[in-house]
Design a binder for these strands. Structure first.
Lengths: 216, 216
DNA sequence: GCTACAATAACATCATGATGTTACAGCTGA
DNA sequence: TCAGCTGTAACATCATGATGTTATTGTAGC
């Protein structure tokens, strides 16, 4: 078991940062970074061919597919791969989203190279590296639901509007909803306009997504 | 602003550990620990009289009022006081509960004295100290709703098709997906046609619904 | 009785999505 | 080498969705 170095992959579109991290990792005795790319798509290509990393360092803000979407994709296909997100952002929503979707850790980009190595070691030992500032945000996020007790976002939708939402989630067209509810298609349109206004969205797809995520 | 030492309080019923930490903290240049008690009640008594700590190190497993209940009480009365929980337990439920209730950090008791000092510094700088093992548990807790993968139905979608699905779930239009993946809108159309065929659906909405229900 | 709002409905217009057809390059396995 | 699949792309056409405007009815609250 011992001799095999751990394989680390990097997805980072800043070539300087990417090369720097790659070179540093390749100087370590127990790890190797063969694959460093600027896009998730490229990493997926080599993974499809069986070149599987143990850990991926993933920039969150990428051209093309975002790091978060990329992580979701990789995690769904290869759940055993550990992913550490790198970011310059302190944005709670992105952090929360990443962690929910299966990131193993979350580091701010100002993290030093030795700290990145430490983070990788932590993940290999079953821990989760997190900048203290990130941890703080995670905790803050945790605390929020405690304050407002229970779910029920209550978006202010009326009964009728909620019925429409159910129709949308069932994948029905306006016409089918109109038939099911025995109203005209223009009334369905009117309701949907109001729903969009209340939920601050502007497509069927977003309503369905919100609903299935429990945000309605 | 400089000269005033930060006030640290300790609630810990093991007298040896308590004294050890107190003495160590009092040896630091920038902090002072006047109040070290074996119960939350005692700490609350001096706080009521205006002797307010900046940070409380709180054992989770106390005689009388538990550390978690104590923390909730202190946080509700004095929300500006930062509280770091100390515990020997890895119990996810206690950890989760503490963090929800407003703990600023969470350390395992095997943490060394210098690490405790580091943790306090982190909190003073607005971060949240967390043992990597704790962080891992927190993330696991986070991931549960999303991460109960079970088996993937594997609808036979190719990588590229799955990327498209991610785009749809993110609420993107064909145009936006084309831009993100750097392909033409007609190619997006082509992929979506294939996805519909494989999933036996015939609208964007159904794909999103299937995906969010974990049926892809 | 007036106000506010939910539910209904029609008409119009433009944007987006769904679907048929065709084509070509690259790769894979029989 | 040929058949089959994936990824790419264009063109066409019709269906559906998104959004603006306006209007009528009923009901709950002041």
């Amino acid at each position: 078991m011992s001799a095999s170095k751990k394989q680390i992959a990097i997805v980072e579109d800043n070539v300087k940062i990417r090369d720097l991290i790659q070179q540093f990792l390749n100087m370590q005795a127990d790890m190797e970074c063969r694959n460093a790319f600027s896009s998730v798509e490229n990493l997926l290509a080599v993974m499809r061919e069986g070149d599987m990393p143990d850990i991926v360092l993933m920039d969150i803000d990428l051209e093309g597919m975002s790091g978060i979407d990329g992580m979701k994709l990789i995690k769904s296909k290869y759940p055993e791969v550990e992913i550490i997100m790198l970011t310059v952002y302190h944005d709670s929503h992105k952090i929360f989203n990443s962690l929910r979707s299966g990131a193993s850790g979350y580091l701010l980009k100002h993290t030093s190279l030795p700290e990145i190595k430490d983070a990788i070691d932590v993940v290999l030992q079953g821990g989760a590296p997190m900048s203290p500032q990130i941890a703080r945000k995670v905790i803050t996020h945790f605390s929020e639901p405690a304050g407002k007790e229970e779910e029920k976002p209550d978006s202010g939708l009326t009964m009728r509007e909620q019925e429409i939402v159910v129709g949308l989630v069932d994948g029905l067209s306006y016409k089918m909803i109109a038939d099911r509810m025995d109203i005209s298609i223009d009334t369905v349109r009117a309701h949907i306009r109001n729903i969009y206004k209340k939920l601050h969205v502007n497509s069927k797809a977003e309503v369905i997504a919100k609903s299935l995520r429990g945000e309605i």
